[in-house]
């Protein structure tokens, strides 16, 4: 089945099994490997991407549902929220192993797009779907807050 959608602002037309989760299309077919596999059942958030600007778990999103959609991965994440998040990530040296961090950053950037000044509670709520086994949570919380403060001016 041929499916056409945008990935990081580039039009892609692919002939794949329509049931294939977006995660494996991104990785195996498009070699965008920044989006990670962690659980396959939308429990850990390592595969978080943006579909039409909203965070989505790529591991449970059949590619057939994306015809005409616009997908953004960590490789294509840009704009003021993305810059603020990455700057704050560096400020707190947030990542440890780093494997979940693409998903954390995608979720954090989406949060800041709709809520530029999140409270600790807002951050906890928005990011509760992203597991970090290294438990870098203290730094994630501080970094998102700091990014929000910078965005808020």
């Amino acid at each position: 089945m041929s499916i056409s959608f945008k990935v990081n602002n580039e039009q892609r037309t692919l002939d794949v099994d329509p049931d294939t989760p977006l995660l494996w299309v991104l990785r195996d077919d498009l070699r965008l490997t920044g989006t990670k596999f962690g659980c396959g059942i939308a429990q850990c958030g390592a595969c978080t991407v943006h579909v039409n600007g909203q965070p989505r778990r790529a591991c449970v999103t059949p590619v057939s549902t994306l015809d005409g959609a616009s997908v953004t991965t960590i490789e294509g994440l840009e704009g003021p929220q993305a810059d603020a998040v990455r700057e704050a990530w560096a400020e707190y040296d947030t990542p440890q192993c780093g494997y979940c961090q693409s998903g954390q950053i995608m979720t954090a950037a989406a949060l800041l797009s709709r809520n530029p000044k999140p409270s600790d509670e807002d951050i906890d709520k928005a990011l509760a779907g992203n597991i970090c086994k290294c438990a870098t949570y203290v730094r994630i919380r501080k970094a998102v807050k700091s990014a929000g403060e910078k965005l808020g001016g």
């Binding site: 490997t33 989006t35 990670k36 596999f37 960590i74 990542p95 780093g98 494997y99 950053i105």
Partner: peptide
């Protein structure tokens, strides 16, 4: 390793 782990560039075995 902070930079490459914030952009998706860090290469893991997978």
């Amino acid at each position: 390793d902070t930079g490459m782990k914030s952009t998706g560039e860090a290469q893991f075995t997978l």
